[in-house]
Every structure is written in C-alpha cells, then in structure tokens.
Amino acid sequence: MNAGPPHWRLAPNLAIRPFPLASPSPMQPVISVKNLSKTYASGFQALKDINLEIGKGEIFALLGPNGAGKTTLISIICGIVTPSSGSVTVDGHDIITDYRAARAEIGLVPQELTADMFENVWSTVSFSRGLWGKWDNPAYIEKVLKDLSLWDKKDDKLMTLSGGMKRRVLIAKALAHEPTILFLDEPTAGVDVELRQGMWQAVRALRDAGVTIILTTHYIHEAEDMADRIGVINKGELILVEDKAELMHKLGKKQLTLQLHQALDKVPAELASHHLALANGGSELIYTYDTQGPRTGITGLLTDLSAAGIRFKDLDTTQSSLEDIFVDLVRQDRQ
C-alpha cells in the first residue's frame, strides 16, 4: 500500500509509542491482563509489558504480523505457556493460583489443526467436554455438531475429514464444555469461503448468546466485519487497542478520485493547497481528506477546479479499510 499523503497523520491521541495502557473496555472486563511479559528460554522476548482488558460479551480481534506475540498471549491466558512476569485474571480468577475456575470459562481453538486423527468426531468432542469437568450431555453435543454442520460426520474418523471440517471439529471441541469465553486463533486459515462464512455466522450466534470472543486472523476484513474492538500487537508490544468503529473513524482516510476529460502533465499551481495527486497517466486527480475534519474541503476543491478550467467526467470516493490502517500502524511502529 502507498504511504498516506503528507497531511494524513495518526491522530495525536493515537500516537504509536509510548502507549501506556489499552483504552478501557466499555463493558465489564472478563479478562484482565496486567504488565504481562514473556521471555522464552532462548532469550526471545515474545511479550513486553502487555496491559489489556477484554469486556464481557464482546468480539475482540487481535491483529499483528507473524511472530508478533498473538499466539503467545493467547497461550498464556489459556495456561499453555508460563508467563515470565505480570498477571492475568479470567472472570476474576487468577490463571495460576485459581487455574481451575479460570480455565473452566475458556474454550480454545488452536491455530494448528491438531486432533486425534484416529478418533471419530463424536468421541473427540465428548472427550473435550469431559476434560473440562462436565459429565456427558449427548443432547448438547448433538446441538453443537448440528450448529457446525458436523452432525452427518459424527461417526467419521478425523483423518477422513477435509481441512475445513477438521477446523470445525476443533471449534466443536472448544465449545463442548459450554465456555463463556472463546479464543479463536486464526480460525479460518485454510477454510474455503463458504465454510468461512458459515463459521462466522456461528461465531456471531455465540456472541449473541453472551460468549466473549477473542480472535486472531490474517484476514483483516474479517476483523473489520466481526470485531467490536481491535488490538494491534507488534514485536511483543500492544501498540493500540481501540473500538473498531472509533479506529476506522479516527484513522480512516477518504479519497475522492476525479476522472478528467483531459489528462494533465502536472497539478496546476493554483490547486497546490489541496495536496492533489495525479494518477493513471494524469487522467485522474486524487484528493485525500480527513473524515474527522470540520470541513472536507471538497466544495472548495470543485470551485477551484472550475476556476482553473479543469473538467471531469466522473468521480468516485473510497474509504481506507482496516487493513490499510493496520499496515500503516505496523509500518510506523517499525520506523
């Protein structure tokens, strides 16, 4: 993606670093991470002083490039990785000293397709329910499998299922004990479009049922569609946590593209104050404006264009996506 034009900057209150604390969750926090750091035995520091609160019933999307620390953060909260320092509470229960109560609330869908390939769907999902301390409930397991379109596969061995099906089995396993918090670590990796949409429908239904959902995804448009709040993590640091709509509003830029009747060699001097850019061999003029500003400046631009005798045959506006914002954030953090 091209860097933003000179006048487009991060809003001052969203300066990348230092970013002392995540913005407070609007809802009652169900997960509270305080000063969490993790250094592996190799010396690699995967997480640096993370502070984060996740509200009850929200969908929180954790974004970051590969190796940013997303999975380490999730793994610590779920009890798979030991933190080096800091604390985490889940629904008020410390994940170390009160791990039973904390873990009982959580369901985890891991990034890797790890499953007992020789087991059938029904038994592996029932196994997960038992591990989380719940006695058999065939009616509930049946509902989970039906919701995930796995019912007709219940007697099939996992090794015979497609990648997308296996992914859904992992979701069914995570839901088998009726968790109130669900972690989805790259849940749609390797899943085809149709299945992916079905999966997100299921996730929305869970959120509607009051389940808190924390997801990581490489498909940023999914976060854009699904999430209530966004967290961006890079090199082990949480560089931003923001309400998604607020983030799009604050950091989103809008572009007006004018298709000209006659191509220009350069932007006329009398239009310099509008910071225009030429594109497509001079046949398009691009004007980027701040969605937050009191005035967009479009009226003034059109007036000046008319005064300069520049005519256009069509116009189009586009708004930056979360992906654009994410890439810019990470790039600025690197600099």
Partner: peptide, 9 residues
Amino acid sequence: TIYELLSAP
C-alpha cells in the same frame, strides 16, 4: 493435542 490437557481445568 497436548494443548487440551494443558489448557483444561
């Protein structure tokens, strides 16, 4: 699949 054992209560 050990992740399940490690993350279970």
